[in-house]
Simulated assay, not measured.
Amino acid sequence: MAAVHQNNLGRALVRFFQDYLPNQRGMSSHTIRSYRDAIVLFLRFVSRDAGRGVERLEIDDLRPERVTQFLSSLEEQRGNGIATRNARLAALHTLARFLATEHPQHMATLQALLAVPFKRGAKNAPIEYLEHGEVRDLLDVIDRSDDRGRRDYALFALMFNTGARVQEILNLRPRDVRLDSPAQVRLTGKGNKIRICPIWATTAGLLRPLCMACEGAADDLPLFVNQRGQPLTRFGVRYLLQRHLANAASKSSTLANKSIHPHSIRHTTAIHLLKAGVDFASISQWLGHASLNTTMVYARADLDLKRQALLQVFPDALAPPKAGDLALGGVNLVDWLRRL
């Protein structure tokens, strides 16, 4: 770490991650890790472009043209989508604003970085989710004859049950799980907001062996660990999902044509709750959304959900005409027009 403190950028990065993000901005550990990943990727990119080690980079090396090239490389070389690209840029913008207050002598470079625009189109990306039969196909291919398989099955069953973000699931400790009726889990979401999510009795049964395995261990031991007893990571979950999806795709032709990632499981839960007739406000609370507008994006997923969304907003106007409404002499023209 000594080399990190030898220049302005290194010292500023230490303050950025140790004080500014957690204390002044109050960001969660998950968000801080996301910012860290983005900035580490960018610094490595700049290091290669500048031909110097990361520890020798200065603030003026964070030029806007390098940011633009970096963002393009995320899409072209790493296969990242527009949403991920914009999330990485948001982290760089936050860093630039912080650096501008700490080192105003570099204001010109940092203002140019802040002028790099977000890419339009992320909100129009299709929502990938699994149909009911595809969920069953995915879970059925998991071999539950050993501990690893039982862990994987419990992991994905819990994710489908709760619609929780991957990190929310990975942060679960045995103390966050209630196995007795009414079974539930306590999830810590964005901004460290806590919400309680009910789980099915079958899901509680799947979690029971995992909770029992943690008995006598440290109180903060996570529920889901890898073979070495270390906390399972988001990358580990992605790997496990892709492996089981590959097996399931050999039996399901529709799965082979979908681009599914861990967050798709959250989308799947939301879509099926909507199809079951659960109102948007309840789903918003269930998923831990900060705004109801975030939940409403699921209404775009298919035509059935669009109809259900409209029925929730204008239930009377979209109800089918009652028999006799159009009889001669008894027509209520306004009511009839509203139902067209």
Rank of each mutant, 00 (worst) to 15 (best):
F224Y: 01
R238T: 06
I82C: 12
G205T: 03
H263M: 08
A125E: 15
R120S: 14
I82Y: 13
G81P: 04
A3Q: 12
L232E: 07
I169S: 08
R15W: 10
T268I: 01
D335E: 14
R11I: 11
L333M: 11
V237F: 02
R52W: 07
R234G: 06
T68C: 10
L274F: 14
F17N: 03
A50F: 05
H263F: 03
T254H: 10
D60W: 02
F17T: 07
S250P: 00
Y239L: 14
L139M: 00
A217P: 00
I142A: 05
A276W: 09
D137W: 05
G81M: 03
F16N: 01
Q242R: 15
A112Q: 13
N8E: 15
R208Q: 01
R266F: 06
L9F: 12
I271M: 10
I169L: 09
A3I: 13
E58A: 08
H267I: 00
L62C: 01
C197D: 04
A276Y: 10
P104N: 10
R120Y: 05
H244G: 04
A96C: 11
I32V: 02
K258W: 08
N257R: 15
A256M: 01
L170S: 00
L138W: 06
R88H: 15
I283N: 05
P198A: 10
R63W: 09
G26E: 13
R238D: 14
L310A: 14
V278N: 10
Q230P: 09
A281I: 12
R25D: 04
S34F: 11
A317G: 15
T101M: 13
A249H: 03
I196V: 15
A122L: 04
D316Y: 12
L158S: 00
R148W: 14
L71I: 06
S34Y: 04
G329L: 08
L328N: 08
N332S: 03
D220K: 00
A248P: 00
L326N: 10
R11Q: 15
A83K: 11
D60C: 08
I199T: 01
H261N: 13
F224T: 02
R266W: 00
W200C: 10
R195N: 01
R243V: 07
E128Q: 12
Q69I: 08
D302I: 01
R266D: 00
V116I: 04
N293W: 06
L110Y: 09
S291M: 09
P321W: 11
T101E: 15
D316A: 14
L232M: 01
R186Y: 06
V297W: 12
S250C: 12
Q242M: 14
Q227S: 06
D180K: 12
T84P: 01
L210F: 02
